[in-house]
Simulated assay, not measured.
Amino acid sequence: MNTGFIGTGSMGSMLIEAFLRSEALLPQEITAFNRTSAKAEQLAQRYPGLRIARSNKEVVLESEIVFLCIKPMEYKKVLDEIRDFTDPSQIVVSITSPVMLGQLEQLLNCQIAKVIPSITNFTLGGALLCMFGERVSAAGRDDLLTLLANIGQPIEIEEKLTRVSSDISSCGPAFLAYFLEHFIRASVEETGINEQQASALAAQMLVGTGKLLTEGGFTPETLRQRVSVPGGITAEGLRLMEKELKDMFNQLFRITHAKYDEDVAKVASLLPRPAE
């Protein structure tokens, strides 16, 4: 399936490499364009056969599915460049959460989907949040979900739940990494364990915990209860966390939603409002 990528920055290149590593796509099935050509050329050097387009228009003309891997404020310019060259049989996939399906459907005559990936997809795991516009056919939906299933687990969500779902699946790895970073640093400072050993232990702990939650039949609550014996060491640590964290997670969702609303408003100033 000929697949195009407009934008080969952090997430665009991650998706390309994940599709290639999973063998869902061959290099010759991928066409990519990036404003900074060097980034796309580096991918072509690593994966001989991958085609570098000379423009966004060329990506659209050569692809059945086109992923828009660009920043929110770049959409107006890119959509203006490709709107006359899309086809009803094509699927254009936005990976940018503040851009609404309805806004894209107002400007493009093709099938529209939105997919929010995660850095975890680089290891061919984790979730991919999927939303579909009104014009997506049953066959188009199946084709896209089948492609995505090679690099993670596609999960369909309502568009109104984009932000909170992204906080969990896409921002979550950074939040957990921040926790582990400080967990490891404190262990070194307080006990003298070396950082390499502490990091290895923490990484394996995270892998094992993930398996318990996905394969072992545990929920976060039952896992906590299983590990924490009343009056024991773990219980003492949890008591401190309960006291210190308080409503931190509630604040986290409030601040990410506030930033999201700000981005949505900025995009709305450039793109038409979705049809009612």
Rank of each mutant, 00 (worst) to 15 (best):
F5A: 09
I6K: 10
M14W: 05
L15W: 04
E17A: 00
F19S: 05
F19N: 04
L20E: 03
P27I: 01
Q28P: 02
R35L: 14
S37M: 05
K39A: 05
E41I: 09
R46E: 08
I52N: 02
A53K: 04
A53W: 11
E58I: 12
E64R: 09
I65S: 07
C69D: 05
P72L: 00
K76R: 13
K77L: 10
E81W: 07
F85L: 06
I91S: 05
V92M: 01
S94L: 04
S97C: 10
V99F: 06
M100C: 06
L101V: 05
L101S: 12
N109Q: 13
C110K: 07
I112R: 10
K114Q: 04
G125K: 14
A127Q: 15
A127E: 15
A127I: 11
L129Q: 12
V136Q: 08
D143Y: 01
L147K: 07
A149R: 12
I151N: 07
Q153K: 14
Q153M: 13
P154A: 09
S165T: 08
C171P: 03
F175R: 04
F179R: 08
L180R: 06
A186V: 02
T191M: 02
I193G: 07
N194K: 10
E195G: 05
A200F: 11
L206I: 12
L206T: 11
G208D: 03
L213A: 02
G216P: 05
G217E: 09
E221K: 12
V229M: 07
P230E: 08
A235E: 14
A235V: 02
L238G: 03
M241S: 11
M241T: 04
K243I: 06
M248K: 12
F249E: 15
A258P: 05
Y260N: 08
D261R: 15
A265N: 15
K266N: 15
P274C: 06
